[in-house]
Simulated assay, not measured.
Amino acid sequence: MADTESKNEPDSKPWDRDRLADYVVEKAVKFWGESKEPYLLSYIAPDLTKIGVSYKEILGPIKLKDFLSEDTKSRLNIVSHSLHRAKVGVVPAGVAYRFPDDHIKVIEGTADAAGQKAILAFVDVISAMDDDALENWNIPASVIKRIANPK
C-alpha cells in the first residue's frame, strides 16, 4: 500500500476496519524490518492523514489500542514502555520486544550504580501509588541515603 494512495480512488477497496488492520500490520512489519523498532501508535494518525484517512471515522468511539489488540491479535503484538505510558507500539506477531530502560542506561557504569538503581526502583514504586496514599508520607533523608548507598 503506497502512502500516496487515496481513499477516493475508484479501484481501491473502501476504508473499513479490515483495511485499517491490514494497513497497520503492513506498516508495522515494514517498520520492524527496517529498524527493529516498534511502529508506534502515535505514527498511525499522521501516516493515515497523508493519504486522506482518519482512523477515528472508521473506529468511532473505539480506541486504537483496543481495536488493534482485538483485530490484529494474531498478526501483531502490542508493546508498551514500562515508564512512558504513552509510548505504545506494535511489532509483528512472534517478536519479543521490550523498550529499553533509558533511565537505567544513564547510570550504568557509575561506581554506585546499584544504589542509584535502588533509588530509581523506589521512585517507580512511589510514582505508582495514588496521591492520597502519599499525602501523609514523610521519608527522612537518612533513609533515602541508606537506600542509595547500602554499603
Rank of each mutant, 00 (worst) to 15 (best):
G109I: 02
T110D: 03
T110Q: 06
T110M: 06
T110W: 02
T110K: 03
T110V: 05
A111L: 10
A111H: 09
A111P: 02
D112K: 06
D112P: 00
D112T: 07
A113V: 14
A113Y: 10
A113E: 14
A114R: 08
A114G: 07
A114Q: 12
A114E: 12
A114P: 02
G115L: 03
G115M: 02
G115E: 01
G115R: 02
Q116Y: 14
Q116P: 09
Q116L: 15
Q116T: 11
Q116D: 14
K117S: 01
K117P: 00
K117N: 03
K117R: 08
K117D: 01
A118Y: 05
A118W: 01
A118S: 11
I119Y: 11
I119P: 04
I119V: 15
I119C: 11
I119K: 11
L120H: 05
L120R: 06
L120K: 04
L120D: 03
A121T: 13
A121F: 10
A121I: 11
F122M: 07
F122Q: 06
F122P: 01
V123E: 09
V123L: 07
D124A: 09
D124Q: 09
V125D: 11
V125T: 10
V125I: 09
V125K: 09
I126N: 03
I126D: 06
S127D: 13
S127V: 09
A128T: 12
A128K: 15
M129P: 00
M129F: 01
D130K: 04
D130E: 03
D131F: 10
D131W: 09
D131A: 15
D132I: 08
D132Q: 12
D132Y: 08
D132H: 09
D132V: 08
D132L: 10
A133W: 10
A133P: 07
A133F: 13
A133S: 15
L134S: 03
L134K: 05
L134C: 07
L134W: 02
E135G: 04
E135Q: 10
E135D: 12
N136V: 06
N136C: 05
N136Q: 08
W137M: 14
W137I: 14
N138W: 00
N138G: 00
I139N: 02
I139V: 08
I139K: 02
I139T: 06
I139P: 02
P140E: 05
A141E: 13
A141Q: 13
A141H: 11
A141R: 14
A141V: 14
S142L: 11
S142N: 13
S142C: 07
V143R: 12
V143Q: 12
V143F: 14
I144K: 05
I144D: 06
I144G: 06
I144E: 04
I144R: 07
K145C: 12
K145P: 11
K145V: 13
K145W: 13
R146S: 10
R146H: 08
I147R: 00
I147N: 00
I147T: 00
A148Q: 14
A148L: 11
A148F: 07
A148V: 08
A148M: 13
